[in-house]
């Protein structure tokens, strides 16, 4: 038996010893390692000077299928649209937050990576997606090629929908980052308790409002409700939000009276305003007025 053990050990030694391989060869020039490179042009310089250097934010505008859905027909953006879009984002979103909350706040919490797509993403159900985001880090913005603001030659009032939707997406995702950093009061979840549903996509905005939600998507979950409130209040402004609240009439199919729905929206508004004040020391109404004014400048 002993000889057997020794012979096993011996064989193992030989096995291990015999299999030293030599070095893996020349690996110092792997193509694409560290990301794609190209000669920087004016757009690259603009992004570097206005977003990357001050806020550590970057935007990928050149086509990279790996950032996108593989089963959708999409196209990259037109070069002439990129700086207008990014500078609109800077004026409406970054500059206003910096003005009310300071430089450091924005540097610390802003999502860092924008991916820009020229066309919309067409869903099988006939709807289109205008923007998505994941993990509070990466934001995908679609339909850049139709981005037109006041002053561009072919601007029609209908285009303001695209512009507002873009800021809706950005403010929405930024709202997620804020509440994932410091959670809002649990009182918020009690306002519409029992009415959150995964069936929100079959509900119109008007029906959702009759139940005390600012949009249909707000019915998806309390977190979505919270950031939809932030996003709608900022992009529509105080006047616009009041119009939304006051336009609720009659009783909803779920039996919510108009007064109840309005009071729920007002309670949510109060919690959002207090959350910004107590947690981030931000005067929400000041931010709201600034944000809305910047959007109005772009579309009216």
């Amino acid at each position: 038996m002993n000889t057997l053990k020794i012979s096993i050990l011996f064989c193992l030694l030989i096995l291990l010893g015999s299999c030293s391989k030599d070095d893996p060869g020349n690996v110092d020039n792997i193509p694409g390692l560290g990301g794609d490179t190209w000669e920087p042009g004016p757009i690259d310089n603009w992004i570097r000077d206005n977003l990357t250097t001050p806020y550590n934010i970057t935007a990928k505008y050149k086509w990279d299928q790996g950032e996108l859905e593989f089963n959708r027909t999409l196209v990259p953006p037109k070069e002439e649209k990129i700086i207008p879009v990014l500078s609109a984002i800077k004026t409406v979103w970054i500059d206003n937050y910096v003005a009310v909350a300071g430089d450091l706040f924005m540097k610390r919490y802003s999502p860092k990576f924008f991916v820009l797509v020229g066309s919309a993403s067409y869903n099988p159900d006939g709807t289109i997606t205008l923007g998505t985001a994941e993990g509070g880090r990466r934001i995908l913005l679609y339909v850049l090629n139709d981005f037109r603001i006041k002053g561009m030659s072919d601007y029609v009032p209908r285009d303001s929908l695209n512009v507002k939707e873009m800021f809706h997406t950005i403010e929405h995702e930024f709202g997620h980052i804020l509440h994932q950093t410091v959670l809002y009061t649990p009182d918020f979840k009690r306002i519409s308790v029992g009415m959150y549903t995964s069936n929100w996509n079959n509900v119109t905005d008007a029906e959702a409002r009759a139940d005390g939600f600012v949009t249909a998507y707000a019915m998806a979950a309390p977190d979505e409700d919270f950031v939809e409130m932030i996003s709608m209040m900022l992009t529509e402004g105080k006047g616009g939000f009041d119009v939304i609240v006051n336009s609720i009439t009659g009783t909803s199919p779920n039996g919510t009276a108009a007064a109840v729905a309005q009071s729920r929206l007002r309670q949510k508004e109060t919690i959002v305003v207090n959350y910004f004040k107590d947690t981030w020391n931000i005067d929400f109404y000041n931010l709201q007025a600034r944000t809305r004014a910047s959007i109005v400048q772009l579309i009216k």
């Binding site: 042009g41 505008y61 086509w63 959708r72 999409l74 196209v75 990259p76 020229g118 066309s119 139709d146």
Partner: peptide, 27 residues
């Protein structure tokens, strides 16, 4: 703009909107 990239095969990508993209535009 265009760039060459090593995907599963060496690839030529027209990576910002051009006349070629008009044919692919989902709109």
């Amino acid at each position: 703009s265009y760039r060459l990239k090593a995907l599963q095969q060496p690839a030529l990508i027209f990576d910002t909107y051009s006349y070629l993209h008009i044919l692919s535009d989902p709109d």
